[in-house]
Nucleic acid binder design. Structure first.
Lengths: 147, 147
DNA sequence: TCAATTTATATCGTTCACGATGCAAAAATA
DNA sequence: TATTTTTGCATCGTGAACGATATAAATTGA
């Protein structure tokens, strides 16, 4: 039939969209006690790897626009997780740094990744398939990020 | 090191989240001319497969909550794509049906899936890997949808 | 039959996500 | 150096997502 392609079942993007939402939902039990959201957790991951970064670098690493990240950081500043200070060489920049609270949260978040992967393995019964998916997703992301 | 797991590079969910966002972005050139968003396109896919469904059925097929779908449908009704009428047997239900405009859009959207998959193949060079990803994503979605 | 519970949808508040636009500082160039 | 362009970030508006809550209708069960 002519419209076979328009069946929901055939759509890869729908699966990515759904899997991403449901997986983010699986973080709730771990992030709610910390009082942070998943995108905020991602910002913390970036800053835990390297503190004191301009907004642009954070946005770039998360493949987000700065107009998404700026309000996110404002909320995180209000929550006492980060500080946003003026750049010294380039005063247009806002350098984002972790507060004491933001630094300390790293230890509390340490186990989250393994909890999540344990959970996924338990739910789906397998691990290997997901590991195999990673380079494919990277290829997709890499290909789509410019265009 | 103790915090190795907290590296962004190691996160599956981050890839899903990013790949989903970027893939949705790739729909823009095709959906913008139709004046619809990606979630609205998903609702249309569901209704094109079967017209006249209650809100709950649509939400269930998209793995969304009704409090996400209701405003979505209200916007689509305002755009003249669907009509929401009271259920006859069960008056609590809202039966969502396609308008003439909504039905006609199907023909205009017919080529979108193949355009997208062509684009992905062109960008990433391969097809097979993505096909192989589908059952894995289905397993993940199936496992996460209840818990 | 009538009260208690469940179900279907809607509303509200908060947080993304992003296109469009604004603005000041830096860089490029005439 | 003066002007133009670019860059970094912020603001605004719209549309998802979703938890919490509300409400009316249907169902259950005492």
């Amino acid at each position: 039939m002519a419209y076979e392609q328009l069946k929901l079942d055939n759509q890869l993007c729908f699966r990515l969209y759904t899997a991403a939402r449901l997986t983010m939902g699986a973080y709730h039990p771990y992030l709610d006690p910390l009082g942070i959201t998943y995108p905020q957790y991602l910002v913390l991951l970036v800053l835990w790897e390297q503190d004191k970064q301009p907004v642009n670098d954070i946005a770039h690493k998360l493949f987000l626009e700065t107009n998404t990240v700026t309000p996110l950081l404002q909320r995180m500043e209000k929550a006492g997780l980060v500080k946003r200070s003026k750049g010294k060489e380039d005063t247009r920049q806002r350098i984002v740094s972790l507060t004491k609270k933001g630094i300390e949260m790293r230890a509390q978040a340490k186990r989250i990744p393994e909890c999540l992967s344990d959970e996924i393995i338990q739910i789906t019964g397998e691990d290997e398939e997901f590991v195999r998916m990673i380079p494919t997703l990277d290829k997709l992301i890499e290909g789509l990020k410019q265009q």
